[in-house]
Structure formats: C-alpha cells, structure tokens
C-alpha cells in the first residue's frame, strides 16, 4: 500500500475549494491552512502561460520532518502517510524548518505542529480526502500506487508529470500532471 495524490494542472481552475473543504473538515484554525493554491506565470504578454497547483504536505518517502523530529511525534504510518501525534509534539519547530514545501505550521492554540493528514480519518472509512472529493474539476486523484490498476498508477504511467522540489531528495508523493 502506497498512497499518492495526483493533480492534473490542466484541469485545475485554482478555485480553492480544496482549501475551504479541508478547513471545514479538519477544523483548521482561521488564518492557517493545510493546503493552498499556487499560481506561477511564465512568459511575456501575449506569449504567456501559467499553472495553478493545489499544494500540501507531500507525504515524502524520505521525509526530513520525520528524520529531524526529536520526539518521534512525526512518523510514517501504513500507506506512507506522514502524521504528527499532537501529544508527543513539543512544538520545537525542527520539522517546520526542514520541510522544503512549507507544509507545516504550529497550531496557534494547541501548540503542536499541524499539517495535511491525507484525511486519514476518512480513508479509514473508505472515503477520499475532503479536498479530492469536493474538487469541482475532478483534477485531483488519490489512490494506491502499489495497485497497477488504480487511477493514480494509470495516470502516472501514461501522462507527463512532475513533483515539487525533486532536488531536495525527499521522494514526494504528490504528483502534478503537466
């Protein structure tokens, strides 16, 4: 079992439904977010194009946050999901510093570090992460890369794709179809 997320930038319209759905689903405090949308523009008018990307924790195979965590609060569970155990987190912020994706934030009231969980609580019930299930363009796919018949495996086998900050060597598990 190896959970991955695949996001088709050709379909994304940058509406941020993924952001608000996550906020509601996971009680993300106001002013913070576990996922966000980035726009990068290339070229000069009128030879110009841009890309929208819904970004979040990349649930890296080689996760620097897990390596740097002094207490073991940041850990990897079955399926490769990187989680934080709030009770074990001392809020030192080492993981925040080490993350090349800026995916973590200190919870302003509870003190621990917080981030995307791939909606593990929904996966346990056989549901998709909130961001994936709400997306009006259906540009987000979620599934098991170990299963050759899954949508995500098929998409990655047939479509051109990229990951963010590959040079960091983190082996991220959020892929972008380009």
């Amino acid at each position: 079992m190896r959970y991955v997320m695949v996001i088709d930038t050709n379909k994304c319209v940058g509406c941020s439904d993924c952001v608000v759905a996550c906020q509601v689903e996971n009680h993300v405090p106001m002013g913070y977010c576990r996922d966000w949308v980035v726009e990068t523009v290339n070229g000069t008018y009128p030879s110009v194009s841009f890309e929208f990307r819904s970004e979040r924790c990349n649930h890296c195979d080689n996760a620097p946050c897990v390596r740097t965590c002094p207490t073991g609060a940041s850990h990897i569970i079955e399926g490769g999901i990187v989680l934080v155990t709030p009770e074990e987190c001392i809020g030192c912020g080492a993981c925040i510093e080490s993350c090349p994706y800026d995916a973590r934030y200190p919870h302003p009231e509870e003190g621990h570090v917080d981030k995307c969980t791939f909606c593990n609580h929904r996966l346990e019930k056989g549901e998709l992460p909130a961001c994936v299930s709400v997306c009006p363009t259906k540009c987000m796919y979620f599934g098991d890369l170990d299963d050759a018949n899954s949508d995500v495996s098929k998409l990655l086998a047939t479509r051109q794709h990229k990951v963010l900050a590959p040079e960091a060597g983190t082996k991220p598990r959020v892929y972008y179809l380009i």
């Binding site: 906020q23 993300v28 106001m30 009231e109 909606c119 929904r122």
Partner: peptide
C-alpha cells in the same frame, strides 16, 4: 471576530459523518 480556533471552539476532532 471569529477566534483563531474557528467557529467551533478548541479541540474539535475531524468530523465523523
């Protein structure tokens, strides 16, 4: 203004439908 912890107050677990 709405408190930082959102409109449902502190320490709310993720939703259980």
């Amino acid at each position: 203004t709405i408190p930082l912890s959102g409109i449902f107050g502190k320490k709310k677990p993720a939703l259980d439908d």
